[in-house]
């Protein structure tokens, strides 16, 4: 009798604490993330500006993705696709520069044969741009590369006689984009280097020793040993950078002179912000664009995740046999 009373009491009594401990997280998450996500979904089927309470069905999606007969529909379609194109261009440019540089540095910093002096110092300095406020970074580069002859770089080039007239670094389509790519790489390459290094440090040095005894060259070792082992962390870096790229906001949004955002720098996130942040907010367009971005993020995440697990799955199966 005593036994049967004690046993269930002991098993049940602590479970409720588990729920109590995790409850604040889930309540806050439901309130600040899940409901807003559902709300975004609902808003994407509603109107814009003055007609924000009206149901319009799929009209926002249709206008954004395919345009329509009205002039407004075509201009919004045009702007949305331009912003998506800009996002891709800016992300690819920034990611390629960043990844090549980070891989090179990560391999160099963790090379046991050829040690670079002051690695600790280099790492600290290279991570520094990542810690600085993006808005301030945008301001800094805006003043350095100002369009007029008052911009620091322009006045330098004019003084040296390399330029006859001030070059509009920000307003020019490609120099503006290259500047954003440079700033993004400048801010993030240190972070990516550290992430990749943590992956390389996990590789057993004995593998490299064996390979070098077998006469492998440095390049060979990189592609045959480092890259395959680095794959999981590499994919992690790609996913986070992709999602970060779809969110790219501060730099492209703030890098303009005067009051209008540069159309050549308007990313998807800037598009969303621009439409919900108007005096009479166009929630419909920005919500529909948000949902498109959300689906895109999810699909990209799943594709890359699959790509990663598919190629390692057969090996695991073999090992299990």
């Amino acid at each position: 009798m005593q036994k049967s009373q004690k046993k269930p009491a002991k098993m049940v009594s602590y479970a409720k604490y588990g729920y109590m401990f995790i409850a604040p997280f889930f309540i806050a998450y439901a309130f600040f993330m899940i409901y807003p996500l559902i709300n975004t979904f609902i808003l994407s089927f509603k109107g814009n500006g003055a007609t924000v309470d009206e149901w319009v069905g799929f009209q926002n999606y249709q206008w954004l993705l395919f345009g329509g007969e009205q002039r407004a529909a075509n201009s919004i379609q045009n702007e949305f696709w331009t912003s998506m194109g800009n996002t891709v261009i800016l992300w690819v440019g920034n990611f390629v520069i960043q990844l090549v540089l980070s891989l090179l540095l990560a391999v160099w910093f963790s090379d046991v044969r050829i040690k670079i002096k002051g690695t600790g110092f280099f790492k600290v300095v290279m991570y520094l741009p990542n810690i600085i406020t993006a808005a301030s970074v945008a301001g800094m580069f805006l003043m350095l590369f100002g369009n007029s002859k008052f911009g620091a770089i322009n006045s330098l080039l004019l003084n040296w006689g390399w330029l006859q007239d001030a070059f509009p670094f920000i307003n020019n389509e490609w120099s503006g984009r290259i500047l954003v790519m440079f700033i993004q790489s400048w801010m993030w390459f240190g972070n990516t280097t550290l992430l990749l290094m943590s992956g390389i440090f996990g590789i057993d040095p004995a593998i490299y020793e064996a390979a070098s005894i077998d006469g492998s060259s440095g390049m060979h070792m990189f592609f045959r040993i480092t890259m395959p082992i680095l794959k999981p962390i590499f994919i992690y870096v790609v996913i986070t950078s992709l999602i970060g790229g779809l969110q790219m906001f501060d730099i492209p949004y703030l890098l303009h002179e005067g009051t209008t955002i540069r159309p050549t720098l308007e990313t998807g996130a800037v598009f969303i912000y621009k439409y919900f942040h108007q005096v009479s907010p166009n929630y419909g367009y920005s919500a529909a664009a948000s949902i498109v971005l959300f689906i895109l993020t999810a699909v990209l995440g799943i594709i890359i995740y699959r790509f990663n697990t598919d190629s390692t799955a057969p090996k695991k199966r073999k090992a299990a046999k």
């Binding site: 709300n39 975004t40 969303i272 912000y273 948000s290 993020t297």
Partner: peptide, 11 residues
């Protein structure tokens, strides 16, 4: 991994 930007309109 869900970015805050995609829920910000509803938020």
């Amino acid at each position: 991994m869900i970015p805050t930007q995609v829920v910000s309109t509803g938020f």
